[in-house]
C-alpha cells in the first residue's frame, strides 16, 4: 500500500510524547503537508510538554506558546503581523480538546466568525490528558476519567464541535485521524490551499494512558472509531456542503471500539447507555449520509 503522504519531516524524534501518543503523530502528519513556511501557536495542552522544555524544541517551524484559551486569537495576531509584513506564512493554532471545546471556545468562535486566515487544528484526545485525565466537553458519554469516576461516569454526550464550526459558515472544516493518513494528508492539503479564511481540522488523537489501553493499540483504536462510525470522517465547505470522505469498508460494532479501551469499562454495567450510543451513532451517520447525498445532488454528481 502506498500512502500519498510527503516524506519530508518537520518533527524531530525524541519528543516528550507518551508511547503511542496520537497527538504527537497528528502533529507529524499535519506538518508534512503544511511544510516549512509556517508558524504554530500552542496553548496549554499536551503539546506544551511534548515539544520539549526550554531550550529544546522538536519542531522545525517556530512555535509560540500561549495561554490556554487563546490559540485562535494569538494565531490571528500573528497572521495580522505577517500579512502586514507581506508574508504568506501559514499560521497554525494547535490546541487540544480542552483548549478548543471548553476554555478556548470563545476565542475560536470569534476567529471563526471573523473568518480569520488561520489553520486551526484540534487534536482531540477526549479529556484533559496533560493534567491527568479529567473530563472535558469532548469526553464521550459513559467514559471513565478522574473527574467522572467509575461510580459516576460521564453523563453527557460529546459536544458536536463540527456543528458549532459549521454554524460559523467557515470555508473549510474536516474531521480526520492519523489512522487514515492519506485522508488526513489530503484534508491538510485542502485546508492549506483554502488560505484566505478560517480552516478547522478536528483530528481524533488516541491517548493510550488516558484511554487505558496498550500503546500499540493507538492506531487500531482510531481506526475502529471510524469503522464503528463513532468518529466519521467528512469535510464541510462553507458550513453547508458536507462530503463523507471515508466510507467504512466493513461492519465494526461500537463494542469493538469500546473493548479496546479501559476508559469505557463503566459501559459494561450500563447496557442502556450502550444502546443509546448505538442509536445516536446510527442516527448521526444517517444524517451525514443524507447531507452527503444532498451535496452530491447539488453538485450534479
Amino acid at each position: 500500500m502506498r500512502w500519498a503522504v510527503p516524506e519530508a519531516e518537520f518533527m524531530d524524534p525524541g519528543t516528550l510524547g507518551c508511547q503511542g501518543c496520537g497527538g504527537a503523530l497528528s502533529m507529524r502528519m499535519v506538518l508534512k503537508e503544511v511544510g516549512d513556511d509556517a508558524a504554530a501557536v500552542l496553548p496549554a495542552c499536551c503539546w506544551s510538554i511534548i515539544d520539549g522544555p526550554w531550550p529544546l524544541h522538536s519542531l522545525n517551524i517556530p512555535v509560540l506558546h500561549t495561554a490556554f484559551e487563546t490559540a485562535a486569537v494569538v494565531a490571528t495576531g500573528i497572521k495580522a503581523a505577517k500579512r502586514h509584513q507581506g508574508k504568506d506564512t501559514t499560521v497554525i493554532a494547535w490546541a487540544g480538546d480542552g483548549g478548543t471545546f471548553d476554555i478556548g471556545l470563545q476565542a475560536l468562535s470569534g476567529a471563526a466568525e471573523r473568518n480569520e486566515d488561520i489553520l486551526y487544528v484540534c487534536y482531540d484526545n477526549e479529556a484533559y490528558m496533560n493534567t491527568g485525565i479529567q473530563r472535558s466537553s469532548a469526553t464521550p458519554v459513559g467514559t471513565w476519567t478522574t473527574t467522572t469516576p467509575d461510580e459516576r461516569p460521564e453523563p453527557r454526550p460529546k459536544k458536536d464541535i463540527m456543528a458549532i464550526m459549521a454554524a460559523h459558515r467557515i470555508p473549510y472544516a474536516a474531521t480526520a485521524t492519523s489512522a487514515y493518513p492519506d485522508d488526513l494528508a489530503r484534508k491538510v492539503r485542502t485546508a492549506v490551499a483554502a488560505r484566505g479564511g478560517m480552516r478547522f481540522l478536528h483530528v481524533l488523537s488516541a491517548c493510550p494512558p488516558g484511554w487505558k489501553m496498550p500503546a500499540d493499540q493507538a492506531i487500531e483504536a482510531m481506526r475502529r472509531a471510524v469503522l464503528s462510525k463513532v468518529f466519521p470522517l467528512y469535510e464541510l465547505r462553507n458550513g453547508r456542503d458536507l462530503t463523507i470522505t471515508v466510507w467504512p469498508d466493513r461492519e465494526v460494532a461500537i463494542e469493538e471500539y469500546f473493548e479496546l479501551q479501559g476508559r469505557f469499562a463503566p459501559l459494561e454495567h450500563e447496557p442502556q447507555t450502550v444502546e443509546q450510543i448505538r442509536s445516536d451513532v446510527a442516527e448521526r451517520w444517517q444524517a451525514l449520509v443524507d447531507r452527503h447525498e444532498r451535496t452530491m445532488a447539488l453538485a450534479g454528481a
Binding site: A39, V41, L64, T66, A67, E69, T70, V73, V74, A75, T76, G77, I78, K79, A80, A81, K82, R83, H84, Q85, Q106, A107, S109, G110, E113, R114
Partner: peptide
Amino acid sequence: LDAEFITVESEHSAMAACVGASAAGARA
C-alpha cells in the same frame, strides 16, 4: 494609518492578539 485592525470578541483576546502580533514583530 496603515495597520491591521482586529475587532476581537473580548479584552482577553485583545491582549492575546497583541501578544501574537508583537511576537511576530509588529508594533501592537
